[in-house]
């Protein structure tokens, strides 16, 4: 066993200091994933389905006992104007935020961002009443 492999196996904080370059298959959608192309050395989620795995408590410590699939629930805009995905563990409900990568599926990202806007959790009838009380001019369809 060479030194690097030994360190990877026994040093608990190895992935805090070193990027993981292994290729793997997405546990959710079966997409084959390589570490290159993310625009960062630390790939966090599947570029196709945007799901991640709950393996870390702190970034890189591999200390979580949960191991559930973290599904994307929303996106938000960080202070620098960059999008970040909010993941939620299907098993334990832990939330985490992560920057989007360069090769993430833009269709799925857009679908994620449009979901709350398109859904009618705000009562459309009450919104129309509000609009007329705000003295909007002209007719709504």
């Amino acid at each position: 066993m060479n030194r690097e492999n030994k360190r990877r196996k026994y040093d608990k904080n190895y992935y805090k200091k070193n990027p993981c370059t292994d290729s793997f298959t997405c546990r959710n959608c079966g997409w084959p994933i390589v570490s290159a192309g993310a625009g960062s050395n630390h790939r966090n989620h599947c570029p196709n389905c945007l799901c991640s795995l709950h393996v870390d408590n702190e970034p890189g410590d591999r200390a979580s006992d949960c191991g559930g699939i973290m599904e994307p629930i929303g996106v938000w805009v960080r202070g620098d104007g960059e999008w970040a995905i909010i993941h939620r563990c299907r098993r334990c409900g832990k939330l985490s935020s992560n920057r989007i990568a360069a090769d993430d599926n833009p269709m799925k990202l857009m679908a994620l961002a449009m979901k709350p806007v398109v859904s009618d959790f705000l009562d459309r009838g009450r919104l129309k009443e509000m609009l007329s009380s705000m003295q909007s001019q002209g007719d709504l369809i």
């Binding site: 989007i100 833009p106 799925k108 806007v117």
Partner: peptide, 26 residues
């Protein structure tokens, strides 16, 4: 809710093209 839509990180008019390029679903 509409903040991300107002600030997309990729050109929205080329959404389909970009997705096809990576072979992604959707």
């Amino acid at each position: 809710a509409s903040r991300p839509l107002a600030n997309p990180p990729f050109p929205v008019e080329r959404l389909q093209e970009l997705t096809d390029l990576m072979g992604g679903q959707g």
